[in-house]
C-alpha cells in the first residue's frame, strides 16, 4: 500500500491522493479510466444522437407547419404566434445558473466541505425545479391557447422535444436530491467525489442541450430554419450522401 501511494504521489503530486482512495471501492480498470465516468460519457454521446434526431424532426416539421399556416391550411397556433422569447430566456438563465451551482457542489466535496456540498446540490435541484415549473406553466399556457400534443405537426415535435428534455431534467433533480439525502446520512465522503462529478456531467449535459434547443427552437425564425434544412441537404449531396 505504501508503495502504491508513493507511486501515486510521484505521478500526480500529493494533491491528487484523495482521489486515489476511490480505488478502495472501485478498482482500476484496464483503460486506466474510471469505468463509471467512462460509461456516463458514452451515455452522453449516445444522448447527443437522441436529441439530434428530435431536433432535426422539430426543424423539419416546424417549417411544414409554418408553410401550411401561410397557405391558409392547418390547425392551431404556429411557432411565431405562440413562442414567448422573454419568458424562455429566464428559463435559460435559471438552467445556466444551475450549472454554476452544480460545479460549486463538486468543488465543495473535493475540498471536504460537506455543508457546502449540500447547499449547492440543494440549490441546483431547486433551480431545476424552477425550470420545470416554468416548463409546466409554458405547456399549460400553450394548451389553453389551443396547442395540444396532436394539434399540428409543430406542436407534436415541439412537445416531444422539450418534453424529453424536461424528463431528463426531472431525472437529474431526483438524482441530486438523492445525493443530498445520502450526504446527510454521512454516506458521501470526500474520497467519493466521483459520485458527484458523474451526476454533474449529466446535469451539465442537460444544460448544453437546452443551449441548443433555446437557439434552434426559440430564437431562429422559420425562414432560417428552412434555410438550415436545405443547407444540410446540400451538404450531404456535396459529400455524396444525398
Amino acid at each position: 500500500m505504501a508503495q502504491a501511494v508513493a507511486t501515486l504521489e510521484h505521478a500526480h503530486g500529493a494533491g491528487d491522493i484523495p482521489h486515489a482512495a476511490d480505488h478502495a471501492d472501485h478498482p482500476p480498470s484496464s483503460t486506466g479510466l474510471d469505468s463509471r465516468k467512462l460509461l456516463m460519457w458514452l451515455f452522453l454521446a449516445s444522448d447527443c444522437m437522441f436529441f439530434g434526431s428530435l431536433i432535426a424532426m422539430y426543424m423539419i416539421y416546424r417549417g411544414d407547419a409554418e408553410r401550411m399556416f401561410l397557405a391558409g391550411q392547418g390547425a392551431g397556433p404556429v411557432p411565431h404566434e405562440i413562442l414567448d422569447i422573454p419568458y424562455t430566456s429566464i428559463s435559460a438563465f435559471v438552467l445556466l445558473m444551475s450549472s454554476l451551482t452544480m460545479v460549486l457542489a463538486l468543488a465543495s466535496i473535493q475540498r471536504g466541505n460537506h455543508r457546502g456540498l449540500r447547499i449547492w446540490l440543494g440549490a441546483t435541484a431547486a433551480l431545476g425545479l424552477v425550470f420545470m415549473g416554468g416548463q409546466f406553466y409554458e405547456f399549460t399556457a400553450f394548451y389553453h391557447e389551443g396547442l395540444g400534443l396532436t394539434t399540428n405537426i409543430f406542436s407534436n415535435s415541439f412537445f416531444v422535444l422539450t418534453g424529453f428534455h424536461g424528463a431528463h431534467v426531472t431525472i437529474g433533480i431526483i438524482w441530486l436530491i438523492s445525493l443530498v439525502i445520502v450526504s446527510l446520512r454521512g454516506g458521501l465522503r470526500q474520497d467519493q467525489a466521483m459520485n458527484v462529478e458523474i451526476a454533474g456531467l449529466y446535469w451539465h449535459f442537460v444544460d448544453i442541450v437546452w443551449i441548443v434547443i433555446f437557439t434552434l427552437v426559440y430564437l431562429i425564425p422559420y425562414d432560417d430554419v428552412t434555410t438550415i434544412t436545405e443547407g444540410a441537404e446540400h451538404a450531404l449531396r456535396f459529400i455524396g450522401l444525398g
Partner: peptide, 27 residues
C-alpha cells in the same frame, strides 16, 4: 482526452443524423 474523443464522436454522429433526416424528408 479519451472522454473528449468519445463525446466528439457522439456530436459528429448527431450532426450526421440531423443532416440525414433533413435530406431524407426533403429529397
Amino acid at each position: 482526452p479519451r472522454y473528449r474523443y468519445i463525446f466528439v464522436c457522439g456530436l459528429i454522429l448527431a450532426g450526421l443524423i440531423v443532416a440525414a433526416l433533413a435530406a431524407l424528408m426533403r429529397t
